[in-house]
């Protein structure tokens, strides 16, 4: 094996054995269409990728699990999964946020997308992917409308009353509630941390309004 080959292989082996983060979590399949539909007045959006690992590591993970009331799944919800957050803009002004999470359902993965205003109050919610046999009922507008105006506090205090639209998919209904709660927790813990919006240009912080 000549030197060039050794150099090339060494470089790539070094690169590959470097400790791995995970692939990106839930991103919008069609951000242009989805953000315009969720925020008709928007003119653009900015994408951010944030991990639990870089924002607080194991200690933050424990905080999230405590608020969620459940442990995070070690493969799909590991601390190095980069979560994707979209800051929605009208001109240069921020008018809202969009964030999606993956959630394990009874038959496969679900992708839950949440849009919220500057007070982190839910504006809309939809499934980007829904594997339940009763997917149609979950994806019905009447089900999504029940989440409008809710905040994380409603979930923490159990003051939200959401009806299960299905007959045989209660497990997927519970998974949906877990996914939405997890989504709201992640927005607060990762993106709107300590009263500031995440911004890599200003050492991770920017004013909220």
């Amino acid at each position: 094996m000549n030197n060039a080959k050794i150099i090339i292989m060494s470089f790539f082996v070094l690169v590959v054995v470097h400790l791995a983060y995970a692939a990106v979590g839930c991103t919008l399949n069609d951000p242009e269409r989805d953000i315009k539909r969720l925020f008709p007045g928007s003119t653009g959006y900015k994408t951010f990728y944030i991990t639990i690992k870089e924002q607080g590591g194991e200690a933050l993970k424990k905080e999230i699990e405590l608020e969620l009331g459940d442990t995070l799944e070690p493969v799909y919800e590991s601390i190095d999964v980069p979560y994707t957050f979209y800051t929605v803009l009208k001109g240069k002004d921020v008018i809202g946020y969009v964030h999606g999470v993956n959630q394990k359902g009874k038959y496969g993965g679900m992708q839950l997308i949440l849009s919220s205003d500057l007070d982190n109050k839910t504006i809309d919610f939809y499934f980007q992917k829904m594997s339940s046999p009763e997917a149609g009922k979950f994806m019905d507008k009447r089900f999504a409308d029940q989440f409008k105006g809710l905040t994380l506090d409603n979930f923490m205090k159990n003051s939200a009353s959401i009806d299960d639209p299905t007959e045989k998919s209660h497990e997927d209904f519970k998974a949906t509630l877990r996914g939405i709660k997890k989504n709201l927790i992640l927005i607060r813990k990762l993106y709107l941390k300590d009263g500031h919006r995440f911004s890599p240009e200003t050492s991770g912080k920017a004013d909220l309004k």
Binding site: M9, F12, V13, T43, Y45, T47, G91, K92
Partner: peptide, 17 residues
């Protein structure tokens, strides 16, 4: 094979472009 993938978004104050 062994390799890499770079994936990036370019953005300004009006958003990703």
């Amino acid at each position: 094979s062994v390799g890499f993938e770079y994936y990036g978004k370019f953005s300004n104050e009006y958003g990703d472009y």
